[in-house]
Amino acid sequence: MKDYSLTNLGELEAEAIHIIREVAAEFENPVMLYSIGKDSSVMARLAEKAFYPGKVPFPLMHIDSKWKFKEMIDFRESYTKEKGWDLIVHYNKEGFEKGIGPFTHGSKVHTDVMKTQALLEGLNKYKFDAAFGGARRDEEKSRAKERIFSFRDKFHQWDPKNQRPELWNIYNAKVHKGESIRVFPISNWTELDIWQYIRLENIPIVPLYYAKMRPVVNVDGNLILADDDRMPEEVRAKAEMKMVRFRTLGCYPLTGAIESEADTIEKIVEEMMTITKSERTTRVIDFDQEGSMEQKKREGYF
């Protein structure tokens, strides 16, 4: 007897592929936002699967805050080249020239100028009407109620109180000119699903996710990588070598490392099954103010 049942990962994959194809079919000019992180890696693989044996009919866009880890940029270049992706890299030129950065301006200003504003600039510049993001509902409280097709007005704003109902797998793709949709094909995946899928599918990820001896500085309880000369020298002087890895990868130095021995994908999955702290504890930006993610999202951040 044939088996007609799908595993959890199989079902999540089928759902994500359906969503990705739906956007490609209903929108004129979609783009996939690519952060180089693990979720982006999974999302890019799902897109490759969705259009196989054809080429993915939309580009990847990386919003470069100019404060990404070096290893991430190297990974981005080699990965997109190997897979034949169209890659757009966009950054906020004005912010960059003003020297906006987390050390000098604080995490709030940096995120606002170099991430949120840069993203809006990029979306406007290419007139994208749909943008895929790798956000998951289990990441953060305000995400739990976000739609898979999340409507944005012409100023890219999200109105949590005025979201379109989303039933079955029928997605309302109607937008007026200038309005757009953010699409989250991996909404229903958990952090553990992501890791299991990376293992199952053998998806390449940035080496920073694997544990290694690295120089780190303890800043307010966060282990910040100290291999970058943009970090003030007096801070860097306090660095010590530790076996660490990254659980999430945001902006350097807004993302903290965790102490870990997990240097293989199996060990990472195992660690994820037993870890007692949530994913976003290593993201410094979240601690700014309560409901800070919701605030950022209203303003147009992912």
Binding site: S5, L6, N8, L9, V269
Partner: peptide
């Protein structure tokens, strides 16, 4: 892990 990822939803 092989066993674990056979879970259904």
């Amino acid at each position: 892990l092989d066993q674990d990822q056979k879970k259904d939803l």
